[in-house]
């Protein structure tokens, strides 16, 4: 068992959980919420696209890519902060 005391583990996991929940909230908005209102959004024009269609063809996708890169960075910062990141 890796030598990390229990309180550090708990603090680290609490933060990890927080990040997971934040990530999944953003994920939920752009996976479901936005597309639920696609018909309304279509009356808005964005970059020449009807916005509802744009979100399903590009908008949500771009956000997912950025979200995962951001998540990876944040999680590494949390690991480093609690001293549980891997030795490089």
């Amino acid at each position: 068992m890796t030598n990390v005391d229990q309180s550090t583990r708990e603090a680290h996991w609490a933060k990890t959980k927080g990040l997971m929940i934040t990530t999944l909230i953003v994920w939920f908005i752009f996976s479901y919420l936005v597309h639920w209102f696609a018909d309304g959004l279509n009356s808005v024009t964005f970059l020449g696209f009807p916005l509802g269609f744009y979100m399903s063809a590009q908008g949500s996708l771009v956000i997912f890519v950025v979200l995962i890169f951001w998540f990876a960075r944040r999680q590494h910062a949390i690991d480093t902060e609690h001293g549980v990141a891997e030795e490089e």
Binding site: L19, M20, T23, L24, W27, F30, S31, H35, A38, G52, F53, S56, A57, S60, L61, F64, V65, L67, I68, F71, A72, Q75
Partner: peptide, 24 residues
């Protein structure tokens, strides 16, 4: 049309779950 775009959204957004819940 738009109805089929559900596949595009689903087949990309699934990776958020892979990253946050599983892969690491």
């Amino acid at each position: 049309g738009h109805g089929y775009m559900a596949f595009i959204v689903g087949w990309t957004g699934g990776y958020v779950l892979v990253a946050a819940l599983m892969a690491p």
